[in-house]
Design a protein around this nucleic acid. Structure first.
Ligand SMILES: [Mn+2]
Ligand SMILES: [Mn+2]
Ligand SMILES: [Mn+2]
Ligand SMILES: [Mn+2]
Lengths: 217, 217
DNA sequence: AACTTATTTTAGATTAGACTAAAAATATAC
DNA sequence: GTATATTTTTAGTCTAATCTAAAATAAGTT
């Protein structure tokens, strides 16, 4: 078994490795973990001792096979618990992340097996992120960022990048949710802002918003 | 917020104080926490600094008002989660304690409020122990230990003292569960053993077993 | 009352995980 | 290609929670 801190670092490194492909910088880890670079170095070296990451000083960090397995198992638990909170306890999708951050560390294989069954084996969490299966396989969905789409293209919202309360509430206010059909009516080259059609309504959205919406075309 | 260790010590002291009425010995705490007396002393002194217990060296420990509130809140969470595990995830009553020991430390008022509602505001956990309400009130049930009952008295099983897997499985094997009607057919003065009637069957039970069954007459 | 035993506390060490400040390595600029 | 800036690591300190060994207090016995 690994400690809470170890699990959190591994999850963090996993996400950073996904994003930028290749070794992860110590500063990036420290920043995502809201800690100092020296603390991150310390933990990275302990993880390397346990062969959960491979690490060469000044060169960055990557997860080993075992490190990936641990990270993915934690992500599976996090997302299953988020589904539970939204589907069974009627939380809003912007309220569940903090609680799932705690629940993801509960240690019990059997619990997760039963929770998965109780939830009827969901494929995606409330934010549209895929739930890894028991063996750590993650369903790869070909989605693109809304900001990369061009005028008159359309698709459905399948995920969000940001999961902060403010952002999710922004979407709620405009009735934009996972599964909502979105069409690009216009795009401004100067600042990347867009006019989009959502159901019967049209909205102006900034590039920053568009960059945080994943669309399946 | 208090640490996991602090919460566990407070819960432990609460239970010991219930049992023996009066200040709790350091050794008793150390034993229940599976740790050394010196470690217990150390934690007790920290809890005293935070005014969660009142403590006079060599004289023992009692919970303060705040200490009781924290302990009872943890017990409430523990028992609600046990109900969830048995009622919703179909665990057996002897399988839930370890997992609840972890879940009881999840920090979220809202989560517990919603869980309580989801479970339809249960009054008792799977072992027959009362679930404290939001304000920390615990329903007092007048129950007696089976070993203190005499020949030809009867009642229903409302709780168990021991919650080890072995003991609960022993009961399962004999179809004895919370709610089961039990009648004392005979009692041996020499060793306190009994013959009891459970439904259509009769069993011989030792004093040790009888001491761990709570009956409502 | 003095001796013996059991309980409890103190002293000192250890580990995980964090911090600050300083040193070392790498990257960027002229 | 040397100087400056940025990134990363090391060195040393801190706190929570644990331990062992030793000292202090309380309880029990003659
Ligand atoms: Mn989340
Ligand atoms: Mn999510
Ligand atoms: Mn329990
Ligand atoms: Mn219980």
């Amino acid at each position: 078994m690994y400690t809470r801190a170890e699990e959190n670092y591994l999850k963090c490194i996993f996400h950073l490795e996904q994003e930028h492909k290749g070794a992860v910088a110590t500063n990036a880890i420290a920043q995502m973990m809201s800690t100092k670079a020296s603390s991150a170095t310390d933990m990275i070296q302990r993880l390397a001792d346990k062969e959960l990451v491979s690490y060469r000083r000044y060169k960055g960090t990557t997860l080993t096979k075992e490190g990936i397995a641990v990270a993915v198992a934690v992500i599976r638990k996090h997302r299953l618990w988020e589904v539970f909170l939204v589907e069974k306890l009627n939380f809003q999708w912007d309220e569940v992340h903090e609680i799932a951050e705690q629940l993801e560390h509960i240690q019990s294989e059997e619990l997760i097996t039963r929770l998965d069954k109780f939830l009827d084996h969901p494929d995606y969490d409330p934010h549209g992120d895929p739930i890894p299966d028991k063996d750590g396989n993650i369903k790869k969905t070909e989605k693109k960022v809304l900001s990369e789409m061009s005028k008159s293209q359309h698709g459905i919202l399948v995920g969000v990048r940001e999961t902060s309360g403010e952002f999710l509430q922004y979407l709620d206010k405009r009735n934009i949710a996972i599964g909502t059909k979105i069409k690009v009516l216009g795009k401004e080259f100067f600042d990347g802002s867009m006019i989009i059609q959502v159901k019967k309504e049209q909205f102006f959205i900034s590039k920053k918003i568009a960059e945080n919406l994943y669309i399946q075309v």
